[in-house]
């Protein structure tokens, strides 16, 4: 008995020793669990505007009408919207950027973020790529990006020649909360809930421990992609990095301020293309009609065979792209 206990101890200690021989890694260092951002990795495409370095690229002829692609989140990145590059083949100058603190763009502290910062960033991005004052500017926003596009139009209605608004949770905070309550409907006994919360005993970090909380946020967000998720995507979204500080900051701001980004939309008489998806069971026609009604002139379009990220997967993209192109060409 004594011998067998000793052998067991020796074996266990040997296993632990050889595990321990692996290189020790720092959890709070960029490049280990999350990729480096543009200020840490000069090889990434970037621009510096409005006091920040943004991960950004532009595709197409710079003199063509410009489409600025606004990704979701808040805190996600533009990697899952790269299908939009195809618009460059049809006479558009397509601009991508990761919003401040999101994706591979430079991080800022939680307390830095305000809606005005987002407006100023977008304005600066447009100014950076704009070829001439007469160049048309279109916004293409998905999810949170569609909310940001609307907020910007609400603020500066005369600056935008047209907009594609794809499944914003809402344009008033009540509608966003209503949507989130359906789209994040985790069941108490589900694997999805485990995947979202059980790891919180393994990893903890303060709001500005970026590398730690970004990684943790990625794991948390991954739980949204369960097979039984009501959002109905075809698969898992590709991404670079989730910006936890920016995401938490804008969600907390919205909960406090309960924004309404529709107060000035009556000034915007240009037709807007409003897209929603067939397979997102948390959205649906009724919610799409309610949210889109804030725009005076709106074309409502349902993407068949796709879920919330209809622009990211082949079926959704192929079923949406012709309508997007027709809409944009009608405003050229």
């Amino acid at each position: 008995m004594k011998n067998s206990t000793s052998i067991l101890m020796l074996l266990l200690l040997s296993v632990l020793f050889f595990w321990g021989c692996e290189q020790e890694l720092l959890i709070n260092e960029s490049g280990n669990l999350v990729p480096k951002t543009v200020d840490e990795d000069p090889s990434l495409p970037s621009i510096r505007v409005n006091g920040a370095q943004f991960h950004s690229e532009a595709i197409g002829n710079p003199t063509d009408p410009m489409i600025v692609v606004l990704h979701g989140g808040p805190g996600a990145d533009y990697r899952h919207l790269l299908n939009c590059k195809e618009l460059a083949d049809n006479g558009y100058y397509v601009v991508f950027y990761d919003q401040r603190g999101a994706g591979l763009s430079q991080r800022f502290p939680y307390s830095f973020y305000t809606m005005q910062v987002l407006y100023d960033d977008l304005r600066a991005i447009i100014a950076n790529y704009r070829h001439s004052p007469t160049q048309q500017i279109f916004l293409l926003g998905h999810s949170w990006g569609a909310m940001l596009a609307t907020a910007y139009i609400n603020q500066y209605p005369s600056e935008i020649a047209g907009a594609i608004i794809a499944e914003p949770g809402g344009l008033k905070w009540d509608d966003v909360e209503d949507y989130l309550s359906r789209s994040r409907d985790f069941r108490l006994f589900s694997e999805g809930l485990n995947d979202a919360v059980f790891m919180e005993q393994f990893i903890t970090g303060r709001q500005n421990d970026h590398a730690i909380v970004d990684y943790k946020y990625e794991l948390w967000a991954a739980a949204d992609e369960q097979e039984d998720s009501p959002t109905g995507n075809e698969g898992r979204l590709p991404y670079w990095r989730s910006g936890a500080a920016t995401s938490m900051a804008y969600m907390d701001l919205a909960e406090k301020q309960k924004p309404d980004w529709t107060t000035n939309l009556s000034q915007y008489q240009t037709k807007v293309l409003f897209i929603y998806s067939e397979n997102n069971k948390a959205y649906g026609l009724a919610h799409a009609q309610k949210v889109s009604s804030a725009y005076p002139n709106v074309e409502l379009f349902e993407t068949l065979g796709a879920g919330h990220d209809m622009l990211s997967f082949p079926t959704g993209w192929n079923n949406t792209y012709p309508t997007m192109l027709t809409y944009l060409n009608s405003l050229k």
Binding site: W19, G20, E22, Q23, E24, L25, L26, I27, N28, G31, N32, L33, E200, Q201, F202, I203, T204, I212
Partner: peptide, 13 residues
């Protein structure tokens, strides 16, 4: 992404 043992202590509650 790097696999391996991570430190300092990864969490505490």
């Amino acid at each position: 992404v790097k696999d391996g043992w991570y430190e300092p202590a990864t969490g505490g509650n």
